[in-house]
Deep mutational scan, measured.
Amino acid sequence: MDPFVVLVLCLSCLLLLSIWRQSSGRGKLPPGPTPLPVIGNILQIDIKDVSKSLTNLSKIYGPVFTLYFGLERMVVLHGYEVVKEALIDLGEEFSGRGHFPLAERANRGFGIVFSNGKRWKEIRRFSLMTLRNFGMGKRSIEDRVQEEARCLVEELRKTKASPCDPTFILGCAPCNVICSIIFQKRFDYKDQQFLNLMEKLNENIRIVSTPWIQICNNFPTIIDYFPGTHNKLLKNLAFMESDILEKVKEHQESMDINNPRDFIDCFLIKMEKEKQNQQSEFTIENLVITAADLLGAGTETTSTTLRYALLLLLKHPEVTAKVQEEIERVIGRNRSPCMQDRGHMPYTDAVVHEVQRYIDLIPTSLPHAVTCDVKFRNYLIPKGTTILTSLTSVLHDNKEFPNPEMFDPRHFLDEGGNFKKSNYFMPFSAGKRICVGEGLARMELFLFLTFILQNFNLKSLIDPKDLDTTPVVNGFASVPPFYQLCFIPV
Results as ranks from 00 to 15, higher is better:
L306D: 00
N107Q: 14
E405G: 14
L245G: 09
N196R: 14
M240E: 04
I223T: 11
G79D: 06
P382T: 05
P367D: 01
M198P: 00
D46C: 07
L9S: 12
E72S: 09
F187P: 02
L306P: 01
K232M: 06
R132P: 07
F94Q: 02
G228F: 07
V83W: 03
G417Q: 09
T167N: 15
N176G: 04
R144L: 14
S24Y: 11
N258P: 06
K235M: 11
H353Y: 06
G416E: 15
G228C: 05
M198Q: 09
H99M: 12
E281D: 08
I123V: 12
L131M: 09
N116A: 06
C435F: 02
A369E: 10
I123M: 12
E326C: 01
E250I: 08
W120L: 04
I289H: 08
L453D: 03
Y225F: 13
R139T: 13
V208S: 15
V6S: 11
C435L: 03
F126R: 01
P37R: 01
F114I: 06
F114Y: 11
P101Q: 08
M255G: 05
M345T: 04
N217W: 09
Q276N: 15
V8W: 15
P337Q: 01
I45L: 14
P31V: 05
M339N: 11
K235N: 09
S12M: 14
C435T: 01
S242G: 12
S393G: 04
Q278V: 14
I244H: 01
V490L: 10
K249S: 06
I462S: 15
S429V: 02
I141S: 06
G25T: 13
Y483D: 01
G25H: 14
S140Y: 08
Y379E: 00
S478G: 10
Y358M: 10
T320S: 10
K383I: 05
L57G: 01
N418G: 09
G135I: 14
L128V: 15
G298Q: 01
Y379D: 01
E318N: 15
A350K: 01
K273N: 11
R342F: 09
D188L: 08
D191H: 06
F65G: 01
W120D: 02
L467T: 06
H251K: 05
L237Q: 10
H78V: 13
F376Q: 00
Y379A: 04
R119P: 09
S12G: 12
N258Q: 13
T210G: 13
L445C: 03
A321L: 13
V370G: 01
Q340K: 07
G79C: 00
D360C: 09
D349P: 00
S24C: 15
S115R: 04
S23Y: 12
N277I: 10
L458E: 01
N259G: 07
G62E: 01
P211Y: 09
I45S: 03
T305N: 03
P211D: 06
W212M: 06
F412P: 00
L268M: 06
Q278M: 11
P363V: 02
L15G: 10
K270D: 05
S365M: 04
L458H: 03
A309M: 12
I264N: 00
A430S: 10
R206N: 14
